[in-house]
Amino acid sequence: MPAPAPVPPRGGRRGRGRLGRLDSTVSPYLYIAPFFLLFLVTGLFPLVYTGWVALHDWDQIMGQGEFVGMANYVDVLTGRGFWRALSNTVSIFVLSSVPQILAALLIATLLDRNLRARTLWRMGVLLPYVVAPVAVALIFNNLFADRFGLINLLLETAGLEPVRWHSDRFASHVAIATMVNFRWTGYNALILLAAMQAIPRDLYEQAAIDGANAWRQFWSVTVPMLRPTLIFVIITSTIGGLQIFDEPKMYDQFGRGGADQQWQTLTIYLYELGWTRADFGMASAVAVLLFLLIVAFGVVNFLLTRRIAHDEGGRR
């Protein structure tokens, strides 16, 4: 599309200058305004309103009750449920995000080579992402069933002890993290691959001439050049990891996180408070705490990632 012809100045130089300045300062904001207006309605308002609900006795059906100040927070923070859910969430998050990003990085590096049928491989890694989470959960439920699951049958055939996938707390975290990794590794690998392809090839040639082997090239060229993308991938998987809901929800028949809260994550705890106990006040308090937690993790992640990438890369 051709650029619109410049409007000939009609007024004096001064008027044109003022409006021109107004144009250049205001119109960018107007361009992005639709997003922010929508965000205001669908994002910010619920966010603030949740904070408001958290300060009240609030029944799901009867609505707003008395103002109770911080009582909901006190109830949440002094109960066993919140802390157990928090440690489950962090455990599942670490078990999923860390291997996931490392594997994604590895897969992306492999896909960055000159492979035959390149598109086939690249689409292949995205396949698990396309499968609906419910279907994934169904498949993994059959794999990880305690008594008649495929994995335990294989273990028993090999003469090994079967793993108590549901009753053992750590084993259940591993199983859920596996489901998450299955779904998201390929997705992250493709994002990293896209960024890798944008790295100028002459950097590698230069490094090769300087005598860097493949490993050294990876750490000193690829990783630093991926820094912004890595930060994006790490932050999004942090947010996703801490909000994990579908997989633990569908890990057993009740979806409450186990009889002893073995795999009850914060979002499931929140759901139970709000939708089983109809206590929106307490559920909102958990939501606010979860929000703060994600912000804290995000900031720490951002600082760490920036630091690491800086040290390795040196320049940007």
């Binding site: 619109p4 409007v7 009609r10 007024g11 107004l22 144009d23 960018p28 107007l30 361009y31 207006l37």
Partner: peptide, 22 residues
């Protein structure tokens, strides 16, 4: 003076129509 830039109009128009569409 109303020699409004077409960009400004376009931007305002887009914003308004999106909201209206919603």
């Amino acid at each position: 003076r109303r020699s409004t830039s077409p960009y400004l109009l376009l931007a305002a128009g887009t914003a308004a129509s999106l909201v209206l569409a919603a």
